[in-house]
Simulated scan of single mutants.
Amino acid sequence: MTANALPAADRLTEVTPSITGREIAAELVPPPQFHTATFDSYRPDKEFPSQASAVQTLRSFARTWEPPQPGGFFGWGRKKQVEHKPGVYLDGGFGVGKTHLLAALWHEAPAPKYFGTFIEYTALVGALGFQPTIDLLRGSKLICIDEFELDDPGDTMMMTRLLGALVGSGTRIAATSNTPPQALGEGRFAASDFLREIQSLSSHFETVRIDGLDYRRRDVSGTAASVDDDTLARTVSAISARGEHVTADRFRDVVDHLATVHPSKYVKLIAGVDVIALADVQQLHDQMEALRFVAFIDRVYDAEIPIIASGVPLNDVFDEEMLQGGYRKKYLRATSRLIALTAGELPPHD
């Protein structure tokens, strides 16, 4: 492949997606790999008993939607239901199964119910407005929020108000989160940070701690697969010949294009794509570019779209300064996902 040539294929950079509030709401369901997630299909690591304990706690939380069991005279023989707060927060590092358990809880809940990332809910408010979003979500039995963003005070405050209105009307909330920029550590999402940031809602949440190792580090190698340009071109041609929808772009072009698309629309950017090819991957040194790329990879991972890449291995795409900075955990999570995506192995739970 010559310096400027790319294999014949569609380009992500030629897609300018749009999305409406109703379309966002319709997408508020678990990602494809979690469409059948259950508590039974979660695989607790025996080395970390908190994982099995979390499953039991969430099973109990799910029983709060069950009608009371009839008992004998004066209620004798009736099994007393465990009392739970209206909100539950899954506290654990990346790759310990929080998203799987969140999806399993969503499947247990009666409708209406919603499941989405923090950015999808804020995008919904942006598209519909604050009060119309409350009106749309009011009456929900469960709202699941994956990756609650704590590093934007304005959006965090807005979401706290939104959830407060919904909890007041009887909706239950389940959430996971990342950490704010000042909180560092090896993959821990500290419950104290989450509860402090949501302020007035904190008393409504109980914390479920989930310890463990990132399963992606256990199940795949520690390096993202990288190929030369000629191999990338031949692979793209072979995939296209099989009738699959493959896109081929230069990495730098995709990074620039992401700056022109709101992150809430990234899901539409990759709609219908089976494989993504990125040529001439380069290390990122700009924080905003890196964070946009993280958001993009989150959507690619949710959609289970493999990546073929040439140039710098994608596990090295974030420079050392970023990996030591305030968004360290986001970059480490994205790195583990990039390893899985380029290795062609997408394990069954996050």
Rank of each mutant, 00 (worst) to 15 (best):
T122P: 01
L105R: 09
A103Q: 11
I145R: 08
G129E: 07
T133S: 04
L105N: 09
E147Q: 07
P153Y: 04
F130Y: 08
F115H: 02
R78E: 11
E147G: 14
G129S: 11
Y121A: 02
Q81W: 10
G126Q: 10
K141I: 08
G93A: 07
K141N: 13
F94W: 13
L136C: 10
L142V: 07
K80E: 15
F148A: 15
D155K: 15
G129A: 05
P132E: 05
V82M: 14
F94K: 12
L128T: 02
P153V: 04
L166E: 01
L166G: 00
L162P: 02
P153E: 07
L136V: 07
C144Q: 10
G95D: 09
K141M: 13
D152L: 12
L136W: 11
I119A: 14
M158Y: 03
G87F: 10
C144P: 14
A123V: 11
L101I: 08
A123M: 13
T133V: 00
L101P: 07
P112N: 10
G93H: 07
R161G: 11
I134D: 00
G95A: 07
K85V: 10
D151N: 15
A109M: 09
F130T: 00
P86C: 08
H100L: 05
P110A: 03
D155H: 14
A103I: 06
K80R: 14
I119L: 15
V96D: 06
V82K: 14
H107P: 03
L137Y: 02
P153T: 03
V125L: 01
L136S: 09
L150H: 03
K80I: 14
T117K: 15
